[in-house]
């Protein structure tokens, strides 16, 4: 294949074309990676111990940060929403307002962002180091699929832990709102919980659930993909880790908006 040099006026378009091709190619690799992982996920043998290890790594060890951020998010919301509602004399609706914003939006999104920072980055770094020290190759030449051993457990753990972490975040957050609204600002306890029960329904909870489930896939997918494709030594690992966190966070927010607009 010979390439004709382009007229100078067209050069910028050539660059643009290359860039577009590169993007499409990397999207293809990115998608192919998930397809391979899913294929490995649904074919036996299943590995229980690595999965438990990953649940511990992604979920259990993120508990403290989830508790902390959940509590303060709820408290901040309690304060701000109370102040806003009191201008209309509608403080009674503090309970549902706090609960709905946490269950539908803030719980899934903030929990996912926190877990990304705590566990996602570590996941990328760990896989990246395994890649550059040839541990991934060592698995491959043992005829053992690195997908099955290194990626599938993280993906499954993401699916299991993200909804649980989100549920925990929601509970703690709503309780934080209660602390500020009821204990501090003097709203009646019955109003806070009662109005919540009236206005929050199953649909709201399901939205939060679907969001957290899909964030679990997004974060583990992005972070394992980035770790798996590290090259160029320690600097490559550092770069991949940053990219994994940034890309996960952006995708979480974009996907959150998308789901928010298509789900009822």
């Amino acid at each position: 294949m010979t390439e004709q040099p382009l007229a100078p006026a067209l050069r910028p378009f050539e660059g643009l074309g290359r860039w577009a091709i590169a993007i499409v190619e990397s999207l293809g690799r990115f998608g192919g990676f998930l397809a391979q992982a899913v294929a490995a996920l649904v074919t036996p043998p299943f590995k229980l111990w690595p999965l438990i290890g990953r649940i511990n790594y992604i979920g259990f060890r993120s508990l403290l940060i989830i508790l902390l951020t959940g509590a303060f998010t709820g408290m901040v919301l309690g304060l701000q929403i109370f102040l806003t509602l009191s201008r209309f004399g509608a403080e009674a609706f503090l309970g549902p307002a706090v609960a709905l914003s946490i269950i539908r939006e803030l719980g899934p999104v903030l929990a996912a962002l926190m877990v990304t920072g705590r566990a996602g980055s570590a996941l990328t770094a760990e896989l990246g180091i395994m890649r550059i020290t040839e541990q991934v190759d060592a698995l491959t030449v043992m005829a053992l699929s690195p997908m099955r051993y290194l990626v599938v457990p993280s993906l499954l753990a993401g699916l299991i832990t993200f909804p649980l972490m989100t549920a925990l975040f929601d509970l703690i957050g709503i309780f934080g709102g209660y602390l500020v609204g009821v204990e501090l600002l003097g709203l009646s306890q019955g109003t806070y919980w009662g109005e919540m029960q009236t206005f929050v329904n199953r649909g709201d909870i399901m939205i939060g659930f679907w969001k957290s489930l899909s964030f679990g896939v997004i974060v583990t997918w992005v972070c394992t993909y980035k770790g798996f494709h590290v090259s160029r030594g320690a600097e490559g690992v550092a770069q991949a880790t940053t990219q994994a966190v940034v890309l996960s966070s952006v995708l979480i927010l974009v996907w959150d908006y998308f789901l928010g607009s298509v789900l009822p």
Binding site: I129, M130, T133, E134, Q135, D137, A138
Partner: peptide, 9 residues
């Protein structure tokens, strides 16, 4: 046997 050993750390 890989050049760097490639032991699972």
């Amino acid at each position: 046997v890989f050049q760097g050993g490639a032991l699972f750390d």
